[in-house]
Simulated assay, not measured.
Amino acid sequence: MADLTYTPPKVWTWDKANGGQFANINRPVSGATHEKDLPRGKHPFQLHSLGTPNGQKVTILFEELLAAGYSDAEYDAWLINIGDGDQFSSGFVSVNPNSKIPALLDYSGGEPVRVFESGAILFHLAEKFGAFLPGSGPARTECMSWLMWQMSTAPLIGGGFGHFYAYAPEKYEYPINRYAMETKRILDVADKRLGETRYLAGDDYTIADIAAYGWFGAFVRGDAYGDAATFLDVPSYTNLVRWGEELGAREGVRRGRIVNRKGEGLVPERHSAADIDIVLKG
């Protein structure tokens, strides 16, 4: 049993034994732990990722672009197994020094351009193709505001609520209550906004919705952190549920959210549309 009277030392030192479920990959320093080059496929966009909520954002956008007729948005999606420490390979760290998925190499202009952080990747692709992002004015600003809002909320939902509710080695009332409160406040912000407009940024579906769906969609579907949807009373956020179900029915969303995930009905790697077609058509 953990010591409930813990007093922080004057200078913190790392004790790997206290790392919980992710002790084998979490560490207080950055950089590569081993040499390994990233693979490269034939398409202009090379995505190295895992189908977590942050990873799903990018594959959903790629699939939405392809569904909208942007054939130049073809991509290879390579699986990064964070449980095995793939994110600490020299190749991955060269694309994302922060060793977090997703990471993208864009070869569409000849010389590779690295893009890391899911929000930056969404913005990069939306601006490149002129899609799912208003071109200028207040609409563009509103979209960017909601995109940045989502990026700021993810650590509270995932690293805060998700960690202490589902992954921490022991359950403690204070952190669970603290982050449940924050998560419900975030859900309430989205619910109130979606009571005013069809989508987060207004009347049009944008990268702000794609970013938010990666996280909120799991709660609406009821597959986030076990039964967290019941614990947080997600069905009571009726506007959010309406939005989540509408987005969940989109072909691009259905295709994108199963990429870079292992298991039945999922696609660990995507190198052509057929990789997803085979799974969805059974």
Rank of each mutant, 00 (worst) to 15 (best):
136 S>D: 15
136 S>G: 12
137 G>Y: 10
144 M>V: 15
144 M>H: 05
146 W>Q: 02
146 W>N: 05
148 M>L: 12
148 M>T: 09
155 P>V: 08
156 L>S: 15
158 G>R: 10
158 G>C: 14
159 G>R: 14
160 G>K: 08
161 F>I: 07
162 G>E: 13
166 A>C: 07
167 Y>W: 12
168 A>L: 13
169 P>H: 14
169 P>D: 11
169 P>V: 12
169 P>R: 09
170 E>V: 15
171 K>Q: 03
172 Y>N: 09
173 E>V: 00
173 E>G: 03
175 P>F: 10
176 I>W: 11
176 I>R: 04
178 R>P: 11
179 Y>T: 11
179 Y>W: 13
182 E>K: 14
182 E>D: 13
183 T>G: 12
186 I>P: 02
189 V>G: 01
190 A>D: 01
190 A>I: 01
191 D>V: 01
192 K>I: 02
192 K>P: 08
194 L>V: 02
194 L>R: 03
195 G>I: 00
197 T>S: 15
197 T>L: 11
200 L>K: 02
201 A>T: 05
204 D>T: 07
204 D>Y: 03
205 Y>A: 05
205 Y>V: 06
205 Y>N: 04
206 T>Y: 10
209 D>V: 02
209 D>N: 03
211 A>V: 00
214 G>K: 10
214 G>T: 04
219 F>A: 03
220 V>W: 07
220 V>R: 02
221 R>F: 07
222 G>A: 12
224 A>P: 03
224 A>I: 01
227 D>K: 11
227 D>W: 09
